[in-house]
Design a protein around this nucleic acid. Structure first.
Lengths: 229, 229
DNA sequence: CCACAGTGGATCGTATACAATTTGCGCTCA
DNA sequence: TGAGCGCAAATTGTATACGATCCACTGTGG
């Protein structure tokens, strides 16, 4: 878990941000438990603030809070995994189109820097970090489109996508998609809304198709039930 | 504000639910302040639970929490108002189409009952209550479509729509849309996805066009900026 | 040897106490 | 008279204390 480098007073958002980063980078695996005392001790705050942070993350769908049991990194079911990408498929292509109409040179530079960092992270064998940066790329497009509401929804969906990938990713070999991001930047630079929309649609389908979402034995869905017969 | 009719121990969800209902029914106007002590006294709980409820509502976009100042019923800006309906336009038509494929007789009965209640509320001159029921109708469709993730997003959007309507509704005369809901039910009953999608799209455009979203002096949107020139 | 009830420790849920911040009022002084 | 300073009341932010719940362990009885 991330160390506390700040001088004195970490706020709720800091706690949530660091924990979120750890989840998105797969340093905290789905199912991992986050005890309030433990987290509080790490950040040097009382449980009050920790609870706020954990609840905020639960609202984002990153954690599951079970009454009297504690907070756990969420484990999306197959159905939830499909829903996440179905929702993204509804929101992102149109948003990419809108972004194409408004992209500035500064935006392009920022996006390219993003891709660069992602590439560098991969080179350093930091797959988790690369994945997070890849997600941020998608959020950046929503920001360019100046659609704050959709951006907030996408924040949740991208985060939950990270959990889905942690659970259902097929191959272990790295990414295959930095091309897709490059192509998107080209479309945005050219102000080509049609292409941007189509590229985004295809990109999402690509990711989705690389997940293993066949029905399977649902993990820890009760050994008891499995043996009941 | 709603009285506490329950016997003994109101939980966080109860508090949030009652407050939310009050906002959706316009018994609490945008800008209204919710003091923690006051709310706590009404519900007979400590500020701890009230704070949880208020934060939950803030995540839904119903309240704005200003640090050290308190919680206020949100006042969506023009931009936010537009964004809410743009997001709904992306999510709801496709969801209505999906719902048409899965609608059962029980669903139809429930939807019709909904319309009936809405009508009755209007007859009793409870415009706020009718508005809330109208929102629930839209959520019900997402539920029928079995899209839990989208339903959650829509819950936020519908709730915020209620605030938008409180602020930007043009005419004071009642509703004009119970027809639209009837037509949707017909399409769903017939399993006609195409119609359902089109009807929903038109319905949203209708509502949107009845809002007064011309640029205007944005209330408290920073006197400072307004005087800067 | 296994099943099961009792018990203790760990952990979360809620209330309360205290600290920090804001805000409005009144006082002073030019 | 009016502007500015400062204090006090009100309100929120954070920490801590206490109670409730869950869970694993242990010991006993069959």
């Amino acid at each position: 878990m991330a160390s506390v480098t700040s001088a004195k007073p970490p706020a709720v958002e800091d706690i949530a941000a660091q924990l979120t980063e750890a989840v998105l980078e797969h340093r905290l695996q789905p199912g991992a438990k986050l005890r309030e005392d433990e987290v509080g001790e790490i950040f040097g705050v009382s449980r009050t603030l920790v609870r706020q942070a954990l609840r905020a993350m639960a609202y984002e769908g990153l954690l599951t809070i079970e009454k009297n049991r504690g907070a756990f990194v969420a484990k999306p079911t197959l159905k939830e995994a499909r829903e996440v990408f179905q929702a993204r498929a509804l929101l992102e292509p149109t948003t990419a189109r809108a972004a194409a109409e408004r992209t500035t040179d500064a935006d392009i530079a920022l996006l390219e820097q993003h891709i660069e960092e992602e590439h560098a992270a991969l080179h350093r064998d930091e797959a988790g970090r690369a994945l997070k940066l890849s997600g941020d790329f998608h959020l950046e497009i929503a920001r360019i489109a100046d659609q704050h509401t959709i951006e907030q929804f996408l924040r949740q969906l991208v985060a939950r996508s990270s959990l889905v990938i942690a659970l259902y990713w097929r191959r272990r070999n790295a990414l295959c998609e930095s091309n897709a991001h490059h192509a998107l930047v080209d479309a945005l630079r050219g102000g080509d809304g049609d292409s941007a929309e189509e590229l985004m649609k295809g990109h999402l389908m690509d990711i989705f198709s690389q997940l293993d979402l066949r029905d399977r034995d649902e993990g820890t869905t009760s050994l008891k039930d499995a043996l009941k017969r």
